[in-house]
């Protein structure tokens, strides 16, 4: 748990961060978002005191760490930034081991921790341990950067637009990975971004800042459905609010039992292992054949967002998608009627 109390930063007579108070529960993924220059980075960097506070208090667990020596505090807090800042003269393993080394862990423990983290990010330890940063792709370097920040099991992980500089495809992959890593490690995260889609994808709570002021701190769904003031809905953007909402909804929430009997308006054919093979009916238009083969692309998984499921329905012009488990077996279906028939 980490709590900010009345965090304020002024430069001369310019107030850059004004009296921000918020509490991030243990294991929560909290996102700071807002327009450029609103004070996100300043707030984040005050937490690990890269920027000295003008006033306010910071509690880590139940401990007031406002007066703790900065270096000691930082070793308890992970920090990952957009420009990564890997040490170019050290190997990947040495980079990841920075904080454990500062904390004087025994070397065997450090070595196994490094391998564990490379594993967590699906980087082959044997291959990557001894590489130098310049031998990594942007995406790999950013994974190493986050692994380094997580190395000493920090009480909270601060991330400042970590995926801001990678290409959209890699960014998507890294976001998914971040979600998985967060689920697996349960680390408390404070994540800065100015991309609402990224925030909706990752956050369990969103703090919206404007000109140094905390406008609303809430669960994503509340931010979308119950904006505290006009600025919130303006910032989120009204045009694709429906889609944004669906990006916070999961297929398993909309999943219904799949019909396999021949007399329903549409039904699935499955093979001996239970994989869906064909759909009968279920197409909204008459100009397509009544029986179509199921391809990998028009299936859904329980963990997929409803936004993506809807996008697949639109693209393949079907009103229904099979929901499959990890082994590819049919476990349910989501339908267009199902999406429409529920308050998002």
């Amino acid at each position: 748990m980490i709590e900010l109390q009345g965090l304020t930063k002024t430069y001369g007579d310019k107030t850059v961060v004004s009296d921000i108070s918020l509490r991030v529960e243990r294991g929560e993924f909290s996102v700071l978002i807002g327009p450029s220059g609103c004070g996100k980075s300043t707030t984040l960097r005050m937490i690990n005191r890269l920027i000295p506070l003008t006033s306010g208090r910071i509690l880590l667990g139940d401990e007031d760490v406002t007066r703790l020596p900065a270096e000691q505090l930082r070793r308890r807090i992970g920090y990952a930034i957009q420009s990564i800042g890997l040490f170019p003269h050290w190997t990947v393993a040495d980079n990841i081991a920075v904080v454990p080394n500062l904390l004087k862990w025994p070397s065997a423990r450090i070595a196994s921790r490094v391998d564990e983290l490379l594993d967590l990010f699906h980087l082959d330890a044997g291959e990557f341990r001894d590489k130098y940063p310049h031998q990594l792709s942007g995406g790999q370097a950013q994974r190493v950067g986050v692994a380094r920040a997580l190395a000493a099991d920090p009480e909270v992980l601060l991330m400042d637009e970590p995926f801001g500089a990678v290409d959209p495809l890699t960014r998507e992959v890294l976001q998914n990975e971040m979600r998985r890593v967060h689920e697996q490690t349960g680390t408390t995260v404070i994540f800065v971004t100015h991309d609402m889609d990224e925030a909706l994808k990752l956050a369990s709570r969103i703090a919206l800042l404007d000109a140094g002021r905390l406008v609303q701190y809430d669960r994503p769904i509340e931010l979308l459905t119950a904006p505290a003031e006009a600025f919130v809905s303006d910032f989120i953007g009204k045009a694709d609010l429906g889609l944004k909402l669906l990006s916070r909804r999961w297929v398993h929430q909309y999943q219904q039992a799949a019909t396999t009997s021949g007399d329903a308006p549409h039904h699935w054919e499955t093979d001996a292992q239970g994989h869906p093979t064909c759909l009968h009916g279920g197409r909204p238009t008459a100009d397509v054949p009544p029986r179509v083969a199921v391809t990998d692309d028009w299936t859904a998984t329980p963990g997929m967002t409803m936004k993506e499921a809807l996008s697949r329905m639109v693209w393949y012009r079907v009103g229904v998608l099979p929901v499959i488990d990890d082994a590819g077996r049919l476990i349910g279906e989501v339908t267009l009627e199902g999406v429409m028939g529920r308050q998002p």
């Binding site: 900065a70 930082r74 930034i81 420009s83 990564i84 800042g85 890997l86 040490f87 920075v98 500062l102």
Partner: peptide, 27 residues
């Protein structure tokens, strides 16, 4: 020395001396 490297070193909790001798001088 890349400012990002220095920022990361500070953010990891290295002291000024450690940043100087372990990061800045070698680079």
């Amino acid at each position: 020395v890349d400012p990002a490297t220095r920022e990361a070193a500070r953010g990891m909790g290295m002291t000024r001396q450690q940043i100087l001798w372990r990061v800045e001088v070698p680079l």
